[in-house]
Amino acid sequence: MFAFCTDPATLDTLPWFACYLTNGKHMAFYASFGTVLLLLAITAPVALLFGFGGAVASRSRVAPLRWFGVGYTSMVRGIPDIAFFLFVPIALDQGLEWLRHHARCPDWSEPIRRGNDFVVCDAAKLPLSTADAWVHDAYGFATAVVAFAVVFGAFAANVLSGAMQAVPRAQMETAEAYGMSRRQAFWRILVPQMWVYALPGLSNLWQILVKATPLLFLLGVEDIVYWARELGGAKTTIFEYPHPDWRLWYFLFLLVFYLALTQASETVFARIMRRLSVGQATAAGDALRKAAA
């Protein structure tokens, strides 16, 4: 990074740290904060979408759809996250490769499963082994997003279906009295009002999602906890910057980061809650009305 970094062994403490904290490995560490934030930013809306779908399905009047919705939420919520994170990406990857294999190599005669091995033709590999490293990274990241979205979607579905039931029945009856169809009442009356009831549960889920990101390394995505452990571990003189076991400091830094992220999310959620409470028949909505009067 800096010109004086060519021979770290000769440096004083301050320039040594300046060089150490800007070496390639630390840059990868800093970049992994971006990876984690990006994962959160993509996963949260996708999981919410899954959750909304699950909630709508589980209160559907069509029986098979209802079974699917109820099955999804109760099954995923009952399985340990870690088992799911190991299962979903492998199953997804092998499933996609199996489909591509049948589409692209129809005249391949050998079996796909051979003993312990799962072998598809080269053209069916996902991503192709000739692909650039970033494609592999992006693919790993995408499977991580799907795994997180499936798991957190199930919890969100439960929160949202609870919120839908919490909207006062009188609201829906009024909608019917105005001649709205079931669909109209759902989209115009129920959905806009349910968020205020869903928000506490959703903010809880968000916090759990934030804390769950270290599971990323299970999926081969190098996250901040992986890098903190790798950088903090004692380094012998085979490395350019030898140092003793500094994991404590790196983990302390992560602790501060996670606390700051929690604080920031609390602030944002408090703001959203205030907005949503306007005009609602809840205690918070009542307080807002009194304050305005």
Partner: peptide, 10 residues
């Protein structure tokens, strides 16, 4: 190390 490790350049 020394078999395989991530060096300072990452």
């Amino acid at each position: 190390p020394p078999y395989n490790f991530i060096n300072d350049a990452g």
